[in-house]
């Protein structure tokens, strides 16, 4: 496909006095409020984007704290109760020698959520300091966050499956802990945070730096 703006600077819809739909790519006059092709609300730049990103980010972080402090699973074996937090569950798996699965759980429930908090915060703050990292690298970071973030929900499903399967009265029973809710909410909130981010903000600096 040919680039309409092969001559410098890169010609964006905003620079041409137009507004583009982020859903379907249709270009409209700047005053148009609703996309004629798909009916989405049009905004040249989402000015409230960063506010919403940070609001969901903080909500996610608040939920992430109890998610790690409270037990995720409560196992009852012949009247004895043992509780496991998220990290405790990983340690248990490693102790049994299940390094592979332990690694997957550690990746999905610890590395990905923590990495996501840093990545979203970095993307939001670097909008105003555009020369910290190359645009393409930041775009990649954003795509990775969007793609991988949902996989943290895995641990919640593990709890759901175990609770449904392991119900043998007093012999052996597994119950969900309060951390399961907190963790599910934390993952949902950080997903909303990432979705609120307007990736066009990453590229606006590109436009401004080339007069």
């Amino acid at each position: 496909m040919e680039n309409a703006g092969t001559s410098q600077p890169p010609l964006t819809a905003r620079a041409a006095g137009l507004v583009a739909c982020t859903q379907c790519g249709r270009v409209h006059d700047a005053e148009t409020a609703e996309c004629r092709r798909c009916g989405s609300v049009l905004k040249s730049r989402d000015t409230t984007s960063l506010q919403r990103v940070m609001a969901w980010w903080v909500a996610g972080l608040i939920m992430y704290i109890p998610a790690n402090l409270y037990p995720m699973l409560r196992t009852t074996t012949l009247g004895k109760d043992t509780s496991n937090t998220i990290v405790g569950g990983v340690i248990e798996l490693v102790k049994h020698g299940d390094y592979g699965v332990g690694g997957i759980v550690f990746l999905a429930s610890v590395i990905v959520p923590v990495g996501k908090f840093f990545a979203i915060a970095y993307l939001a703050f670097s909008v105003h300091r555009p020369d910290t990292m190359h645009n393409k690298a930041r775009q990649h970071l954003y795509e990775v966050v969007e793609f991988i973030g949902r996989w943290s929900m895995m641990d919640v499903f593990v709890v759901a499956i175990l609770t449904a399967l392991v119900q043998f009265n007093i012999v052996l029973a597994i119950h969900p802990g309060i951390a399961a809710i907190c963790f599910a909410l934390s993952v949902a909130f950080t997903m909303l945070s990432a979705q609120s981010f307007d990736p066009r903000l990453i590229w606006d600096a590109d436009e401004a730096s080339q007069p």
């Binding site: 680039n3 309409a4 703006g5 890169p10 010609l11 964006t12 819809a13 905003r14 041409a16 137009l18 583009a20 739909c21 982020t22 859903q23 379907c24 790519g25 249709r26 270009v27 775009q139 990736p199 066009r200 990453i202 590229w203």
Partner: peptide
């Protein structure tokens, strides 16, 4: 327009 970076 590119839905991600607004380029025409």
């Amino acid at each position: 327009a590119c839905p991600v970076c607004d380029l025409l």
